[in-house]
C-alpha cells in the first residue's frame, strides 16, 4: 500500500497531478450547477432578479 503512494519515488508528481486535475474538473462541473440554481432563484423573485446583462 505504501508502495502505491510512493510510486517509485515519483509520488509527489503523480498525486499532485491527479489532485489538481480532480479539483479543477470538479469545480468546473459544480460551478454551472450552482449558478443555474441561483439564477432560477433570482429570476423567480418579484423584482425579476439582477439587472439585464
Amino acid at each position: 500500500m505504501a508502495e502505491f503512494f510512493e510510486m517509485g519515488g515519483h509520488g509527489f508528481f503523480i498525486w499532485t497531478s491527479y489532485a489538481v486535475t480532480a479539483l479543477v474538473l470538479l469545480h468546473g462541473y459544480l460551478a454551472p450547477v450552482l449558478r443555474r440554481k441561483n439564477l432560477i432563484r433570482q429570476l423567480g423573485s418579484p423584482d425579476r432578479g439582477p439587472g439585464t446583462k
Binding site: 468546473g28 454551472p32 443555474r36 432578479g49
Partner: peptide, 25 residues
C-alpha cells in the same frame, strides 16, 4: 456534461423574459 450545464445557464439568463423561462422559474 459541463458544457451543456453552462448552456442551460446562458439560456435562462438570455431568455429570461420568454414564457418558457418564466414557467421554469
Amino acid at each position: 456534461a459541463a458544457m451543456l450545464n453552462r448552456v442551460r445557464c446562458e439560456l435562462l439568463d438570455q431568455e429570461r423574459r420568454t414564457r418558457w423561462v418564466q414557467e421554469v422559474v
